[in-house]
């Protein structure tokens, strides 16, 4: 076998999905998605700096059903990435490495993501009337 065709680790397809690995993939995937989402943030800020007309266009786009769907996905990805990022920071100081702990913190990340996303959207719709 030539050096080019050697099998590379990790062999994703031979493992039964584990909490630790699935969340690890998720962290990277949401990170890349959030990087794409920064385009929307910069567009929104630049529109506010450009003028009333540009801002109306931007907020119309963001407020449409498709814009809200994107925003929902953005909050979901953001909360997942932040929660799991905090989990990573605990690992970085040497805490929570035992497998049962890592599984438990993985579930906590999923629960935290769901709760924070839900609370954000309920509060967001609650505030809609404030303006």
């Amino acid at each position: 076998m030539s050096a080019q065709n050697r099998p590379l680790s990790p062999h994703l397809q031979v493992w039964r999905p584990q909490m630790t690995m699935v969340i690890s993939f998720g962290h990277r995937a949401t990170g890349v998605a959030l990087a794409a989402g920064t385009l929307l943030l910069v567009y929104w800020l630049a529109a506010a700096a450009t003028g009333a007309e540009a801002y109306e266009t931007a907020s119309g786009l963001i407020g449409s059903w498709f814009g809200r769907l994107c925003l929902f996905g953005w909050t979901l990805a953001l909360f997942f990435h932040v929660c799991n990022g905090v989990r990573h920071l605990f690992w970085d100081v040497g805490m929570g490495y035992e497998l049962p702990d890592a599984d438990r913190s993985g579930w906590a990340v999923l629960a935290g993501t769901a709760i924070l996303t839900l609370v954000t959207w309920i509060a967001g719709y609650g505030f809609m009337g404030a303006y």
């Binding site: 506010a48 505030f127 404030a130 303006y131």
Partner: peptide, 19 residues
């Protein structure tokens, strides 16, 4: 990020001048 999301929530429905 927590501050920013909380701000977005409080800005929901805000017009140009509020923004």
């Amino acid at each position: 990020t927590i501050w920013f999301v909380a701000s977005l929530v409080s800005l929901a429905g805000a017009d140009y001048f509020a923004m």
